[in-house]
C-alpha cells in the first residue's frame, strides 16, 4: 500500500474503505500498525528511562484500530473540519497516542525521542496546545467524556456527521464527571459518540478492584442506556468487529456506544507482561533491548530470546 493511498483512505468513511481489502489483509494491516506503535512506545520510554510504557503497550491495539482503520482524518491537516474527533481523556497515555500519531503520519517518527523533554511538542501528559492531532488536554482525569458530549452536540447542531471517539481509562470510571457525561450523552441521544475504555485493571494505588471496584462495568453502561460491548482489547479481530458494530449503529440521533476493552499491561513484551503491575513500571536500562527483541520476536512468531 502506498503512502498516498493510505492517507487518502483515512478520509473515506470506514465502510467504503473495507471493500478495498480482504478481512485477512485488514487484520494484518492493523496488527502491523499496533506492532509499530509498540516499538515507538518502547523507544520513547527508553529515552526518558521511564514513562507509561506498560499502559501504551496495553492500549496499542485499541489505538491501532482507531488510527489505522476507523478514524476519518487527514494526517497532514489535523484541523481538517470534517475529521472525526479522537479525544484522549487519559493524559498520561499520551505516550501511546504520540506513537499512534506518528504511525498515522501526523507527527514525524523522529520527533518521538523528544517525549517528555524540555521544549518538546510531546509532553508527558497530553495537551492540545502542544501537539498536532491532540484534541484536548486530558491530564486531569474525568474531563474527556464531558468534553466529548459537548463536541457531539456542537457538531450535530452544525450539521456535521463526524464521529467522536473518547478514550478513557478504567480509573476514570471512578470520577463522577464520567457518569454525568454518560447520562448526558444518552439523554441527548448522541449517536455519533463512542467511548472506548481501557480496562487494564490498574490504577495509581494498585489493582482497580482494591482501589475502587467499578464492576460490573458492562451492566453500568447498559443501565445508562449506552450500546455496550465488552471485548478482549488485545484481540484485533474482536476490536475491529466491535468498532464496526458501533459504526453500523452510529447516527446523528441515537444511542451512544461504548467499547469496553480488557487489556493487559505491557502486552506484547513478556518481560513486562509478567512483571508486577504498577502505574509506573520500572524498566532497567539494560532491559529495553530485551523488550524490543521480545516484541519483535513475538510479532514475527519466533520464540523470544
Amino acid at each position: 500500500m502506498t503512502v498516498t493511498h493510505e492517507l487518502h483512505s483515512h478520509e473515506l468513511p470506514q465502510k467504503e474503505r473495507m471493500i478495498q481489502e480482504t478481512a485477512a489483509e485488514r487484520l494484518e494491516r492493523v496488527g502491523a500498525a499496533a506492532y509499530r506503535i509498540r516499538h515507538h512506545a518502547l523507544n520513547m520510554g527508553e529515552v526518558q528511562g521511564q514513562g507509561y510504557v506498560g499502559q501504551a503497550l496495553g492500549a496499542a491495539d485499541m489505538l491501532a484500530t482507531v488510527y489505522s482503520d476507523q478514524l476519518r482524518f487527514r494526517a497532514e491537516d489535523p484541523e481538517w473540519e470534517a475529521r472525526d474527533r479522537f479525544l484522549l481523556s487519559t493524559g498520561h497515555y499520551a505516550i501511546g497516542h504520540y506513537a499512534a500519531l506518528a504511525e498515522a503520519g501526523t507527527i514525524p517518527v523522529t520527533e518521538l525521542e523528544t517525549y517528555g523533554s524540555d521544549d518538546s511538542r510531546l509532553p508527558m501528559s497530553g495537551m492540545s496546545t502542544y501537539t498536532p492531532g491532540m484534541e484536548i488536554s486530558g491530564g486531569s482525569l474525568g474531563h474527556g467524556l464531558p468534553i466529548a458530549v459537548g463536541m457531539a452536540l456542537g457538531l450535530r447542531y452544525q450539521g456535521s456527521s463526524a464521529r467522536i471517539y473518547n478514550f478513557l481509562s478504567d480509573g476514570e470510571l471512578d470520577e463522577g464527571s464520567t457518569w454525568e457525561a454518560a447520562m448526558g450523552a444518552h439523554h441527548h441521544q448522541l449517536g455519533n459518540l463512542t467511548a472506548m475504555v481501557d480496562i487494564n485493571a490498574l490504577q495509581a494505588d494498585g489493582k482497580t478492584d482494591n482501589v475502587l471496584r467499578t464492576e460490573p462495568v458492562t451492566e453500568k453502561w447498559e443501565a445508562f442506556g449506552w450500546y455496550t460491548q465488552r471485548i478482549d482489547g488485545n484481540n484485533i479481530a474482536a476490536l475491529l468487529a466491535a468498532f464496526d458494530n458501533a459504526a453500523a449503529q452510529a447516527a446523528a440521533v441515537g444511542r451512544p456506544s461504548v467499547i469496553l476493552c480488557d487489556t493487559k499491561v505491557g502486552r506484547g513484551v513478556p518481560l513486562l507482561e509478567e512483571r508486577e503491575k504498577a502505574h509506573f513500571m520500572r524498566i532497567e536500562e539494560h532491559e529495553w533491548k530485551t523488550c524490543r527483541e521480545q516484541l519483535t520476536a513475538g510479532y514475527e512468531g519466533k520464540d523470544a530470546l
Binding site: H39, E46, V47, E113, G116, S117, D118, W288, K289, R292
Partner: peptide, 11 residues
C-alpha cells in the same frame, strides 16, 4: 528497532 538517541532531560 534501532533504539533511541541520547538521553534528554526528563519531566
Amino acid at each position: 528497532s534501532t533504539g533511541p538517541a541520547p538521553k534528554l532531560k526528563t519531566s
